[in-house]
Design a protein around this nucleic acid. Structure first.
Lengths: 233, 233
DNA sequence: GTGACATATAAGTCTGACTTTTTGGTTCGG
DNA sequence: CCGAACCAAAAAGTCAGACTTATATGTCAC
């Protein structure tokens, strides 16, 4: 997704970040900078930069005379796309996928409602195109092509909401949808009802019907929750 | 809020971060590391660490032979608590407050619904205490005391939802509520109707009534939206 | 104009010496 | 026996300087 290994410290992070988020160094563990530098065969300056980044993500805390201690999971910056990617790649994957899906279920309906009010003509057109693309690839095991349009659809909705916080969740949704297609459920063609809902959301947004857009999107996210057995009924 | 000036690079960040988020260095501007190091009177290594942190927040991008370029706002990690604090402290404050309030309006009702299902007895007790504290300080210009309980109330809701992503929004909500009391509206005692709603939410959570908790919380957040003139009617 | 090549530039890396803070133990006095 | 003051070691923090590497840009031949 993001450029891997942008410099030496980047490669260290690609290795150390996942290790920490995976719990390989449990919270409370103490690391020493120059020991790490030796282990990773980099200079102290490079390792220090890596530690600084981990610190800015609240994954670790660096204190004099004690070392670099791993923070408890509850303090991590779980909205950092990098952290999300690391967790999705590791043992935390199921929990991460669940919590992100719940977040989606809260945000996307509201975003769709706002999109109905604020979407530009261009965004409406894009949305319709995406919906058409989804329909066109909804049968015959064309999951990859379907996914591309599905992802684009939700990104447009979030962007069209006009809310910068919502817009920035585009990457998150992308990861969740991609994860669902590639690793979890979805061996067969997507649920036809879900496809229809997307088409109808595009309609509602185009017509400026905020309430309908919100309600329909809520149905979509409820479906996503069901897929992960998060909802009871 | 967070420890200020944890080391030299921290002080550099406290100065450079707000400057960037405030648009003092507009997107596309190019900075040079050793020039910055000279300006801030720190060594290159310290400045490099600061730049690395800014880079991890997607505020800047560092490339060989060109320098450190400021990224467009749309790419910033706007969920980073540090970035949020910087923006709330600067010219972006109004927009930031609005977008965060919209985010709250999406998340908190869902969180309250989940809290009704998953809150522990202890959390229910805490919630009730908070509500009582709000009532007790709802009249007579005791805004500070009221705020403390209000903040605590919403933090408990988010934590009790059992969703880690929601829980981590506690800090954000704290900033928003504090900002509202200290800088924006709210010169007089809080709206009695809002106070009642909080009491009722505590009730609903205690009784495990998810739908009612969600609906009532939605009314609270709608009120918050109105205060910032985000909703039309 | 186009492509190959040279050059300057700014980030990236490494090393070693030095400073500062903090912790944990030790000693001394009550 | 306990507490306060003190001391020493440990680890992060800071700095300066030399060197490497990627790359944008300009130059020249064709």
């Amino acid at each position: 997704m993001t450029t891997p290994g942008r410099g030496l410290h980047g490669r260290v992070l690609d290795s150390l970040g996942p290790a920490i988020t995976a719990g390989e160094y449990p919270p409370g563990s103490v690391l020493r900078t120059d020991e790490l530098a030796k282990d990773f065969e980099v200079s102290r300056s490079v390792m220090r930069e890596a530690v600084r980044v981990l610190e800015s993500m609240h994954l670790v805390e660096s204190r004099r005379r004690v070392g670099v201690t791993v923070r408890p999971k509850a303090e991590w910056n779980v909205y950092d796309p990098q952290v999300i990617r690391w967790r999705l790649a590791g043992a935390d994957r199921p929990q991460q996928l669940r919590s992100l899906t719940v977040l989606r279920s809260a945000v996307e309906p509201i975003a769709a409602g706002l999109a109905a009010k604020f979407a530009t003509a261009e965004q409406c057109a894009e949305l319709t195109e995406c919906a058409i693309g989804m329909v066109a690839n909804s049968r015959g095991h064309k999951l990859e092509a379907y996914l591309v349009h599905d992802v684009a659809f939700h990104r447009v909705i979030l962007a069209a909401s006009g809310n910068e916080m919502f817009a920035r969740l585009g990457d998150v949704v992308t990861e969740v949808l991609a994860g669902r297609t590639h690793h979890e459920v979805m061996f067969e063609d997507p649920d036809p009802a879900a496809v229809t809902l997307h088409v109808q959301v595009a309609e509602a947004v185009r017509e400026g019907d905020a309430v309908r857009a919100e309600t329909l999107t809520r149905e979509i996210t409820i479906g996503a929750l069901h897929e992960l057995d998060i909802l009871a009924p």
